[in-house]
Every structure is written in structure tokens, then in C-alpha cells.
Design a protein around this nucleic acid. Structure first.
Lengths: 334, 334
DNA sequence: AACAATTTTGCATACGTATTCAAAAATCAA
DNA sequence: TTGATTTTTGAATACGTATGCAAAATTGTT
């Protein structure tokens, strides 16, 4: 038989006070005498009272929930991002509603779910917003920040790694290490991460008089990187370095090369992007670009919470700087 | 300036009906004429009305939220589990409140959060419940299922892989492949997964007259597996196979052996447990035991939802059968 | 002791929805 | 057309909490 739920009214009766006093005992910055508060908390403990966040949310219009919409949860980069978001948000008293997304653009249903629960903000990782979605969030006073992706439509706040600068530095780095015949394995085309990383890379190569290089779409996946490497080598056997625009596809590319008896980095250098945990595993020892996840998460949350009141501000895109991590997958050919 | 929230009252006014009719228009199994429903839905669309799940939850005492408490989110096994739970739960109309846990036992604060939001159930992965926590959940009518872990205290439902049977089959498999000097890399001691996998392994070895084997704690991590392998080899250079009780520590063990110039599987065979995606990567090509995540998730949800009404039933432990996945890390020495 | 100032507390109410109950409307059968 | 039956609909209410407002209580000053 289901127990009857314990409410503030029950606590009030036991403690000999009013329901509003019980509510004040559980709030910060409320006027209540120390003595009465003590009595109330003891009564609550005795009854096993737990404030009802749903009722509180209805009254205050503050759910204390942040929605995190995440794609590619099985890419090790994103569990790390989720871990960091969770830490920071729970420190600030927020709870996380998790939405596992499947599409490049957040779906109407996903938007509806977030609005239904009056989330106080939404972090969208690795996906984009339609203008209809932006409108719905804005109309409902829900602050949104795109994490790791952005669009130049001036509608959404975003926090990304400075991918262009990173791609450029990677380009210079590979050339300075003596590589001449470079190739690029991208993620899904037209995503801001792919475009910016490739454009930065291209910019660096152009400065060295290299006006073209081979590109294949690695779909940001292990298998995609494996196949992309295969396709690149079919086109040009003299490639001496490949910039993979994420770590997972770099692992796939490395495994393809190894299967062909091509040594990494002796024969072909591989560099990745993200710096996931297994980049450090000695079977890969991947040289890669470290994304500043901590800073990106902190900036995202700051941007998010500074808009939770629904103030209309000009959306901004924050680009944060990562850094190179040298391990063993890039040869020094000088 | 924040927009005023659109409510069912607003829709009612525009549609020329009552608020209760609007509510009925958004509900299934409500009595409302087709004509009126159409008018109401059009008015709602025009105003951008979104039912308020918080208000609904207060009335119905059904939050439609399931809490998922997860540890070790950066172990690739768990993002896959989260992905599957999310899929199944959203199909059934549930939303996921995500809690990233850090301890072997779910914390009081985490219990309080779940109760506060009146979650309709909670999945606890890779962690345990104190009896105090069980009491609180029960008192609040919240169904709980432990995923991948259990305790023999008869208080909590649990769904696990049949780890004992798996460990036993792995033991027989390695011996049948001609290995004689076996070792075991465990997870944290006293966890049900470690204990059952080791006990099953031990049982198989005993049937072949092998009464002891070396064990080291690999902490279910890459670095832990790496160091455990090192310690094992320090103790006995003639080990010819190591059963690692999860894949991540198997990757660490493999990398340690490779660093020492010890070939896997020619010199030492390695077998893991879980069958995470990178077990299939050709740099590891890990032979491993596949955990039946889909079935485990389905059983967990069935167990969970069959208790959402808070009916008191004898807690049960469901053990589901996995299977061996042979790749390239176990040598056939016959 | 009396009065002023401040703090504490309870009453009343609202938040937005779902649902009970009964009235109104619609439908059906004779 | 009338009466019986069924369906639809709105009024009223409750869900559990937070808070405004004013009364009550407490504290401080003269």
C-alpha cells in the first residue's frame, strides 16, 4: 500500500507552526527565528519530509533544471563534457535533464520537452538550432548556449574552441616538422568544427605555398577515419601527414595504416583533435590538439546563467584557445 | 522584457471554451468533441502554448521523469548504457534526469534530489544503495533498480550480466586454448562484478586442478590495468593468459605488455569483459565477453515500471547471459 | 511603563493543470 | 414529439509550495 506523501502541512502540525513557517525553514534568506527553525527541521527529519520541487517550481517558476542535449554520447569526448557540465551545474544547485539527440538540428519534440519542464537553460552540444527552435526558447524565456558548434545567424550564444587558429597552428606544426604532402580527414561537411579546422589548416599551408591538399570525410568516427585513410592512400601514396579533425577518426586512420604495414609516424604522421583519454594510451600515443573543455564548460554556464532571466542580449560566440599535445604520432622529419 | 507565459487559460479564451476543455484536448482518452479539439489545438498553435509539465506533475503526481544515477561516465561502457536507457525510456514517454555519481554508494543528497523531483523511478548504475536510501525511496513510492551491480540484502531489484557463468566460461575457454598459467585482473574488490567474475573463473580453473592464480586490482581503469599487468609480470614471468574483468583495464594491460616487448597474444593472451566499441579496433582486436546491454536495459526498465506504483514485491536479481566475442588477443596454443 | 521600531509569523492567495461532478447538449428510440 | 440515454462541457476544486501583507510578538529607547 502506497504511503501517504508527507507534506509541509504535516510538518507544520507536528511542529506547531504554520505551513508558511515550514517553507521558510527550508529556504535561505527567510525571516524565521532560530528556535522555531530548529523545531521545524527536527519535525521534518522525524516525518521524513522532503520538499516537493515540482510544487516549488510551479510557484517560483524556477525548475532548477538545465537541459543538456547531447549527440554522439559514445564519442569519448562527450562523456567528458557531460561529466564537467554535471559537476559545475550541481555545484550551482542545478539538476540535469539529459536528452540524447540523433540529428544535426535539435528536433521540435526535444524543444517541446525542454519547454514543458520549464528548464532554466539548455546546453546544445554538437547540434544546431532551427530559427523556429530559437523562437520557441526565446518566447519561453529559456536561455540556450550551443557548445562546440555555432552558426553565423546571430541568434544563438555559442562557445567553441578556436578551431580556425588551432587548424592553422596544426598546419604550421606539421610543416615545421618537415612534412610536405599533407592531407585532411574531416568530420561531417558544413559543420562549423569541420569548416573552421580545415580553413585554418588551409590558411597555414597557403602561407607555405601549398595550395591544395587531399580531403576525405571521416564522419568523426573510427570507421569513418579508417575508410577515409584508405581513400586518401588510394589517391596518393606519398602522403606524409594526415590531420584528422577529431581523435576518434585519427584512431581509425592509424589502424588502417597499420593494417597496411604503414608505420605511424615513421611513414605517415597522424595528428588528431580533442585529446580524449585514449589519445594518451601507448598503443596510439596520439599527438593531438587539446580542447579546453573546462574553460568551455565554464564559459557556457556563465553565458547560460547570465541569460536565464530571459534578457535579450546580442548573441555572442566565444572562441577559446586550446593547445598542442605532442606524443608519438607525428614524426620530426627535419 | 520577458514574455508572459501562455497558459491553458489563454488558449481557452481564444478558442471560446473552458480551461478544462483545453486540458482535455491535450490528453489522451479524454471526452471531447472532434470539432472542439481541432479549434483548441489551432488556438494553441497560434499562441505557442506548451502544456506545463510541472503543473501537470503536481496534479497527477506523475513527473514522467526517470532518474539515472551513473558512475564512471568516461568508461565507454556507460555511455552505451546511457544511450540505450535513453532510447527505451523516451519511447515510453519518460524523460531522464541524469546524476553523475562519484561514490560506491549513492549519496543522501542524490537520493534527496530524486525524491524532490518525484521521479517515477531510478536506475542506479555501478553503485549501491544504503539501507537508509532504500527506505527513503520506498517511503516515497519510488521504484529503484540496480544496473550491473547487486547486493544480497534482498532489498533492491537488480539486473546484471550472469558474471559467474561468464567467468567460468572464460576460464574453460582459456584452458581449452592451451593456457596453463593464468592470472586475473579485477575491478575494485568486493564489488559484485569483480567477485562473481573471479569466482566463476576460479570455479573453472578448479575443475582443471588449478587451485590458485595471481590476482591484481586493475580498478576497472586503463592505468589500473597497466599497473596490474606490471605487478603480475613482476610476480611471475611465465603467465600465459590474463583475464581482465573489464575491457578498459584489458587495454591498459595490453599496452603495458607491448611496452615490454611482450607480444599479445603470442606471448601472453588477454581477454576482457564488456565488449565496448574499441574492443573491435584493430590495434586491440580484443577477445572479450559481450555484456547483453540491450536485454539488461529492457529488463531493468520492465522491472522498474512494474514497480512504479510502489507495490511492495520481493526484490529480485535478474542475471542475463552474455557471450564470448573472439578477436585476436587470445592465442590458440593447442 | 509607554511608545516606537523591528522582527516574526500566519492567513490568504496564486501558480497551471487534471479531474470530479453535475449541468447542458446531443443523440436515439418509441 | 417526447422521453430516455449518452456524451460533452464548464465550474469548482485540489495538488504543495512560496510569498505578500498585515497582525502579533519582540526588542529597544525614553
Amino acid at each position: 500500500m502506497k504511503n501517504k506523501k508527507v507534506t509541509a502541512m504535516d510538518v507544520a502540525r507536528l511542529a506547531g507552526v504554520s505551513q508558511s513557517s515550514v517553507s521558510r525553514a527550508f529556504s535561505e534568506n527567510s525571516s524565521i527565528s532560530i528556535k522555531k527553525k530548529k523545531i521545524i527541521l527536527e519535525a521534518a527529519e522525524q516525518l521524513g519530509y522532503q520538499p516537493n520541487a515540482i510544487a516549488r517550481g510551479l510557484i517560483t517558476n524556477q525548475s532548477r533544471i538545465i537541459g543538456i542535449v547531447m549527440r554522439n554520447i559514445q564519442n569519448p569526448f562527450f562523456p567528458e563534457v557531460l561529466d564537467r557540465f554535471y559537476s559545475r551545474l550541481s555545484e550551482k544547485g542545478y539538476h540535469v535533464m539529459f536528452i540524447n539527440s540523433q540529428n544535426n538540428e535539435i528536433q521540435e519534440e526535444e524543444v517541446s520537452h525542454l519547454i514543458e519542464y520549464s528548464v532554466e537553460g539548455a546546453i546544445i552540444t554538437d547540434a544546431l538550432l532551427t530559427s523556429s527552435a530559437v523562437q520557441k526558447f526565446t518566447r519561453n524565456g529559456i536561455s540556450v548556449v550551443l557548445f562546440n558548434r555555432y552558426v553565423n545567424d546571430s541568434l544563438s550564444n555559442a562557445v567553441v574552441c578556436d578551431n580556425f587558429a588551432a587548424g592553422k597552428k596544426i598546419g604550421h606544426y606539421l610543416i615545421e616538422k618537415g612534412h610536405e604532402n599533407l592531407a585532411f580527414i574531416s568530420g561531417p561537411v558544413n559543420t562549423s568544427t569541420t569548416v573552421d579546422r580545415r580553413n585554418g589548416f588551409q590558411s597555414a599551408l597557403a602561407e607555405h605555398g601549398i595550395t591544395s591538399f587531399l580531403k576525405e570525410n571521416g564522419l568523426y568516427s573510427y570507421r569513418g577515419g579508417y575508410i577515409a585513410a584508405q581513400r586518401l592512400l588510394e589517391q596518393d601514396k606519398d602522403i606524409d601527414a594526415i590531420f584528422c579533425s577529431n581523435d576518434i577518426s585519427a584512431f581509425g586512420a592509424i589502424d588502417y595504416l597499420r593494417k597496411q604495414g604503414i608505420r605511424v609516424p615513421e611513414d605517415i604522421s597522424i595528428i588528431g583533435f580533442d585529446n580524449v583519454a585514449m589519445a594518451d594510451w601507448s598503443s596510439y600515443a596520439l599527438t593531438t590538439w587539446h580542447q579546453p573543455i573546462d574553460e568551455m564548460v565554464d564559459s557556457s554556464i556563465e553565458l547560460l546563467l547570465n541569460n536565464v532571466n530571459g534578457e535579450v542580449r546580442s548573441p555572442e560566440i566565444q572562441r577559446l584557445e586550446g593547445h598542442l599535445v605532442e606524443r608519438g604520432s607525428v614524426m620530426d622529419r627535419r
